Amino acid sequence: MFVVPMNRTIAGFGHSVLSGFSRSLAGSCSVLLYHRVCRLDNDYLLLSVTPDNFYEQINFLKRNCRILTAEEFREIIIKRKRFLPRSVLLTFDDGYADNYYNAMPVLETLGVQAIFFISTGFVDKQVEFWWDKLENIIIQNGQKIKEINFNGFYVKMGSVKDGIDAFNKIFPVLRNLNVADRDNLINEWAAKANINYERDAYRPMTWEELKRFKDSSAVVIGGHTVNHPSLGTLSIPEQRFEIESSKKELERHLNNRIYYFSYPFGQAYDYTKNSKEICKDAGYEIAFANYPDRVTIISNRYSLPRFVIRDWNLSEFEKQSAFFCK
């Protein structure tokens, strides 16, 4: 999951430019980050791409870029080979059920592959991810709570705009709380808003769905912690639990070796040097972060950059591709 940006463009993230020397020596690869493929009535968090737009985006990439498989990408990174021009890798974070029902069929139809990073603590729970639940409470039902006095700020909520403002203040605090405190607060606010349901459109996959999902040639599974915390806020033992346990659980349920990991949120303060060392010790061979840049031979393979993709139509996607389809 990614923090809500101020705008929808890749350029708005402050795209950094790699040296021409690095690119000419070993080429580069753009790793693209998706979260959801579905049509929502309201997508305040900008996490979803509609199925039609997703098909157009991937079809454009297939026609204009070289979409690597996970194994092709891994071999280039591990053996420090040269990326061919216009190389791209597709990734998804979190493990929403719509990845199985909407994203996978498109990837299969077009004959391409993506890595899907799964937060195991949400699998089979039939509950929404905590940020979605927070969005439902604060943005869509904030008028029922009316006000929140939390962490030194006071917010009155009577409109969607009030809710968005409150969400943007509350979210950074909750991402840094321990899991129990975070969930207790969200449940308390849900009770005040009289929200005693889980929205099916927001649920994660079940283990049965994941087992069928991983059998597709379009799918490779990766780890994404257990509880989706900001690892940079955790102690070393807590980080080790989140990183190692998710890998072991995925391997036990799916009977597949897990090579890939992505850091929840993925900003520079969401993981540490210790996080990278724990990933390496756990047996992950590659770990992905969340900042816009292209992967080259000089990239640290335990904090590789990715470009976040939004719900752009084909025309807008073509414009945005100027930043990553090179």
Rank of each mutant, 00 (worst) to 15 (best):
R240G: 05
T272A: 04
F241W: 12
W207I: 04
N255E: 15
W207D: 04
T233V: 10
K211L: 06
I278Q: 09
H224M: 07
I278V: 11
Y263P: 03
D270G: 02
K276H: 03
H253G: 00
T233L: 02
E244G: 13
Y271A: 01
Y260E: 11
D270F: 03
K214G: 00
G266A: 02
L210M: 09
Y271Q: 04
A218Q: 01
L231H: 09
V226W: 10
G266Q: 10
G223E: 10
F261N: 05
P237W: 05
N255I: 05
F241Y: 15
G232M: 01
K214M: 07
K273D: 15
F213A: 01
H253I: 12
R212E: 13
L254Q: 08
S230Q: 09
P237D: 08
F265M: 13
H224N: 04
E277G: 02
I278N: 10
E238R: 12
Y269D: 12
S275A: 00
K273S: 14
D215K: 03
N274A: 15
P264D: 10
P229H: 08
G222C: 03
T272S: 15
I236Y: 13
Y263G: 01
L210G: 01
N255Q: 14
S217A: 06
D270A: 13
S262D: 11
G222T: 04
R252T: 07
E251Q: 15
V226N: 06
Y260G: 00
D215Y: 01
R257I: 00
S245E: 15
I243W: 14
I236D: 08
H253C: 08
Y259K: 07
G232W: 06
K248W: 12
L231I: 06
A282N: 12
D281P: 01
S275D: 05
G266L: 05
I258W: 02
F213M: 00
N255H: 14
Q239V: 02
E244S: 14
E238C: 07
G266S: 09
E238V: 01
K276C: 04
S262E: 07
S245G: 07
S262N: 02
E277F: 10
I221K: 01
